[in-house]
């Protein structure tokens, strides 16, 4: 095999890639070190597994499960909503306007979104008011900070459907009309076109949409803090609590490492799946 010549052009990448890599690697290093007791801001810095022992507690697993469940449900429910929505939007007139309206949640910061929706689902919020007026309920329902996390889930879905819509809409739009026409021409009815052409072609995009929303939601802080239950809470929130409320940065670092591992596991699972679908 021929030895490859060193490509000087790579040096041009240093300002951009270098900047990003420096902070990524530096913070990863510190996080790892902290999780094993180094860089301790409040006590002695030395190797220790005690912080990991803190982490593997009931609270941690409850919170991990809460984040995981919310993320998975958000990703799946959103895609179930937005797949058919993207299909329908392709064929209705005035779709440009609809699309723009649907994109609004994307540009609303998570915290603001949460506050807005909280106002609607609050104890004295709009929904409870209407239900009471209609005499469907005797006293207000607890929709916000409810133990099941439905409040947080609703905000997440509201925020993530548009995000997935953009991915799915362009994936479906990218299928050339000729290709669908060809299928119809060869005898495929609407259902067959969906099953044979549209879904298989857009499946990789749907996977991307699901994984991206999963990772976003799994790592979410603001929405679970405002609209989610008080216990369990999200894993990011737990990390925040340890770092700022208990001033225990080392345990926070352990949680950070766990979040990274989960995200990486999910992305690897994704690339495994997409390879499998590709073949």
């Amino acid at each position: 095999m021929k030895r490859r010549k060193f490509e000087w052009g790579y040096l041009l990448l240093i300002p951009g890639v270098g900047y990003i890599m420096f902070f990524v690697l530096a913070s990863l290093y510190i996080m790892f070190a902290q999780s094993f007791g180094f860089y301790n801001y409040t006590g002695t810095s030395e190797f220790s597994l005690q912080f990991w022992q803190h982490v593997f507690s009931r609270t941690f697993f409850d919170d991990l499960w809460f984040s995981f469940r919310t993320a998975l449900l958000t990703a799946l429910i959103s895609i179930i909503i937005c797949y058919p929505l993207s299909l329908i939007l392709q064929r209705i007139p005035g779709r440009k306007t609809f699309l723009s309206i649907l994109k609004i949640p994307m540009f609303v910061p998570a915290l603001v979104a949460s506050f807005l929706i909280v106002n609607i689902i609050d104890y004295h919020g709009v929904i409870n008011m209407i239900l009471e007026k209609l005499r469907l309920i005797d006293e207000p329902l607890r929709l916000r900070n409810d133990a099941a996390g439905i409040g947080a889930l609703s905000v997440q879905i509201w925020k993530n459907v548009p995000f997935q819509m953009i991915i799915m809409y362009s994936a479906i739009e990218a299928i050339r009309k000729d290709v669908r026409d060809a299928a119809a021409n060869l005898g495929a009815n609407r259902f067959s076109i969906l099953k044979e052409i549209i879904i298989p072609i857009t499946l990789p995009s749907a996977l991307v949409a699901v994984i991206m929303v999963f990772v976003r939601t799994f790592n979410d802080f603001a929405i679970s803090k405002t609209a989610g239950p008080y216990y369990p809470t999200s894993i990011s929130n737990l990390m925040y609590l340890h770092a700022y409320t208990f001033a225990d940065w080392n345990t926070a670092a352990c949680i950070g490492v766990m979040m990274m591992i989960t995200s990486i596991a999910f992305v690897s699972f994704y690339s495994y799946l997409s390879k499998k679908i590709g073949n």
């Binding site: 050339r176 000729d178 290709v179 026409d181 060809a182 299928a183 072609i201």
Partner: peptide
């Protein structure tokens, strides 16, 4: 089809 319109997948 002039554009072939093959099913890419």
């Amino acid at each position: 089809f002039q554009s072939y319109a093959l099913f890419p997948h």
